[in-house]
Design a protein around this nucleic acid. Structure first.
Lengths: 338, 338
DNA sequence: TTGTATGCGTTATCAT
DNA sequence: ATGATAACGCATACAA
């Protein structure tokens, strides 16, 4: 090993050691046709020995493409950003792309600053990760690279947004409850200000309507995305309508609280009341008693989809509108047939 | 607005419009001394109008520094990586640094691959984010840039690691319980294979020893990091030793389960049994009944500390060893005095 | 004070 | 088949 650790190993160095010009070395390494097999092997050997890695900055400067995308999040601390981000990172990594992460923390000024930085770094594209399912303002100012909105939908139909299909997911849950023979289904969910809450309620109501059934309790119990609200709403609901035989909760967290309350009230789950949640958040869904049936948003796949659309856009396939990503029903004991 | 959106705005373009050479334009923008005030204002005005941003690739190529650090995570999906990552991102953002995110997903091959990519991209430094508190193997191979290990500790004392002080955090919790007059304190925690579990137990035992008190139940109840284990262990513990007056749980998740079990057993919290958790994980700590006293790891600050150490290293201040980051006691109703 | 020239590491073009 | 050279965008040493 004659490698001196302090000297950065460049193509020039490889060429020198292989006894060829940089041009030839470059061709050899990039599998260009016009280079003698013997020369090629020699260059490759030297490159391998020095563990040569071409300088991505130089490459990017020349090609105009940095093979980097910016991932701009509103609020990374939230629960939904991470799986999406994971899916994005994974899908892009396969395409030899790297991810520059920027968290705006809900601050518009910081967001603009981040966008400037990302563009200065010559990102090839941008993925904007919403912290909520809601429609959000499109990025102001003309961004010279493709942008894909993930999880949160852009208000500009000229943009491409990849979002979760909450209406469809709720339909899955509702149809599951109906299939179990439940007929007096109530809905406890989070803040009405969230599109996620409204969409899920809409999906449930659509299925109930089609079946000619009313919603138990009259209207959805909108509240907070917390166990506390799940407990409280359940008590109120069962006091008002003791005949409820199923609860569709807007999140697993709420459902966890609901199950606790049912337990306190002496109702058996699922025998007396079936409970289904939403999100497939493991720490709630698998740890409740009994474990929770729920709808998995498949956020990681959603992120991968967004990444793939961005890559397609980079290759010229511009696409606009909203791509809705279906959820997946996960059945556990809280809706076991019986 | 005479800006054509398709033409990338370069320094050459700015210089041309300002009627000066690129050299002068560069000096004007970089606040070099020898440039006429009048010329400077003119250049600045043009740059502003075109919203010129210097190409970071070119700059990096020239300076040898990309002002980018690689953030290498083992497992982003876990609960602890995110806050640390957030702190890192924030602290680096203030220093005009960007973060290249790579998740190895616990795969050594993928990790090496990511390191190669990051080095090819000329990152100035690396932050290695552990998914557990445990000691982990130092990055193999000589990395030509500074590396800081965060959350997970490197096994090489020549590396710099920034980790949470679990022993100290546990001491805080234990001393709090003692100060409330509790004397029969039991410990329910996660898998013994986790250093976090062992360290927290050690901190508690140290405090009890110093006070001449035994651990209720004889030894820590090691199990799983779940509500389920919290419930089960609590039932077992109270059956064996009904006189327990305080539970120190190794995580909020466990504590949440413990409180549920105490509730089922008819024990009042905190009157009969005080409960304290660990992590300050909001969804458990604030949603349990009653809300949970706990120890906050302050992971975001830990991440910021790691970032600052990396920046210091980039400026030449090499430092090695282990920096232990203190936790913070958060008192809520589950240990209210009374 | 301003402009010209050079170089960072790489790839592409054009001679040889 | 190989090599010299230009170019990417910027910053700087040096010349004017």
């Amino acid at each position: 090993m004659t490698r001196r650790p302090s000297a950065p190993v460049t193509l020039t160095e490889v060429a020198r050691r292989a006894g060829v010009s940089v041009a030839t070395a470059s061709k050899a390494l990039n599998a260009r046709p016009d280079v003698a097999p013997q020369t090629r092997t020699r260059v490759l050997a030297v490159a391998e020995e020095l563990s040569f890695q071409p300088n991505a900055l130089a490459r990017g400067l020349l090609s105009g493409s940095s093979r980097t995308v910016g991932l701009l999040t509103d609020e990374l601390a939230g629960r939904f950003a991470i799986p999406v981000l994971l899916g994005v990172e994974n899908a892009l990594g396969d395409g030899e792309m790297s991810v520059l992460l920027c968290d705006a923390r809900g601050d518009a000024v910081r967001r603009r600053q981040h966008i400037r930085t990302l563009l200065a770094r010559q990102v090839d594209g941008l993925i904007v990760l919403g912290d909520r399912n809601d429609v959000r303002a499109s990025l102001a100012g003309d961004i010279p690279v493709p942008v894909v909105y993930a999880y949160g939908q852009s208000d500009d139909p000229g943009d491409l947004s990849v979002v979760a299909d909450d209406v469809g997911g709720a339909r899955l849950a509702a149809e599951h409850l109906l299939a179990l023979g439940r007929r007096r289904i109530a809905h406890i969910t989070g803040e009405e200000g969230y599109r996620a809450a409204r969409d899920r309620a809409a999906g449930l109501l659509a299925v109930l309507d089609a079946a000619g059934l009313p919603l138990a309790g009259g209207r959805p119990s909108y509240g907070a995305w917390s166990q506390r609200w799940g407990r409280q709403a359940t008590r109120m609901l069962l006091a008002a309508d003791p005949g409820v035989d199923a609860l569709f909760c807007g999140s697993d967290q709420i459902a966890y609280g609901a199950i606790d309350a049912l337990h306190d009230l002496g109702r058996r789950v699922p025998d007396d009341v079936a409970v289904i949640g939403y999100d497939n958040w493991e720490i709630f869904a698998t740890e409740s008693r009994p474990p929770l049936s729920t709808v998995d948003l498949d956020l990681e796949r959603l992120g991968a989809t967004a990444a793939r659309h961005l890559i397609a856009a980079l290759e010229g396939e511009r696409r606009t509108g909203v791509v809705r990503h279906p959820g997946r029903l996960v059945v556990r004991d809280s809706t076991a047939p019986g």
